[in-house]
């Protein structure tokens, strides 16, 4: 009945993919499936070969996006509310495992990115013609770490601010651009230092001289908007290049 309706047919142009023709057609006419080719080498999708880690990483990214959006409904990135919102998220909100899913998903994503790269290295899959996609992957690794790092601050507890303090203190020592970095004296205008603790790389990162409300705001925006957008763009390129550079890896 439903499958015969005009609505169903307007969404799915073809019958169920139960014969060879429709199994091919479904890959070409479905937006989500068309990321895939129609057919692949059997060996290329063997689990012992791929470990499925790239796919798992992408799935975790989706999990993080969905749980992240839901968490944003409950969370206000201000000194007054940040910690309290996390507290009530744990104690008051129903389905209180939202933050757990998000945090453990994030840890898992860092690990699966590493394992994905480990597999790509060990199978030599970065070699020509896939050099560029490996570089895109390295940038995605950096962005994954930065996503996790910026998210670490948001609960605004002791664990958060001190981890971010330790992590961002290093920016103080950026050569030339950190106020305690080598070559910091180079940038001065008629005897006035251009690089001080209120104008150096660390200040740009934190928005303040220490980890405070400005930092919370900056990290919140980086975590929820800026970095996810960059990741999405690079993911698209990453997937597209997998297809363009000879498909799923395997012996030449």
């Amino acid at each position: 009945m439903i499958r015969e309706s005009q609505v169903w047919k307007s969404i799915f142009r073809h019958p169920m993919p139960q014969d060879r023709r429709n199994r091919i057609v479904v890959m070409l006419t479905n937006f989500f499936l068309h990321l895939h080719p129609v057919s692949v080498k059997k060996q290329g999708i063997a689990l012992s070969y791929t470990w499925c880690m790239g796919g798992v990483t992408f799935f975790l990214f989706l999990v993080e996006t969905v749980t992240g959006v839901l968490l944003m409904f409950y969370y206000r990135p201000t000194l007054e509310w940040a910690y309290n919102d996390i507290l009530s998220l744990r104690d008051v909100t129903s389905l209180g495992i939202l933050r757990e899913l998000h945090r453990w998903g994030a840890h898992a994503m860092v690990i699966t990115v590493w394992l994905h790269m480990y597999r790509v290295f060990l199978t030599g899959s970065y070699k020509p013609p896939r050099e560029f996609n490996w570089v895109v992957g390295v940038i995605l690794l950096l962005l994954t770490l930065l996503l996790s790092f910026t998210g670490y601050l948001l609960p605004w507890d002791q664990l958060a601010i001190w981890a971010i303090t330790v992590g961002s203190n290093m920016a103080r020592a950026t050569p030339v651009l950190g106020h305690e970095g080598p070559g910091q004296q180079l940038l001065n205008l008629q005897g006035i230092d251009m690089i001080t603790n209120a104008s150096d790389a660390r200040f740009a990162l934190l928005g303040e001289r220490f980890v405070g409300e400005g930092t919370l705001n900056r990290f919140y925006i980086l975590h929820c908007i800026a970095i996810p957008l960059a990741v999405s763009l690079l993911l698209a390129i990453h997937f597209w290049r997998v297809r363009k550079d000879g498909g799923i890896s395997g012996p030449l």
Binding site: P17, K42, Q43, I45, L47, G250, P251
Partner: peptide, 18 residues
Amino acid sequence: EKLDNEKVLVWPDLVYTE
């Protein structure tokens, strides 16, 4: 990895694994 050169359709082999 080179022994098995057989190709399979992504639906169902890969989609179901995913």
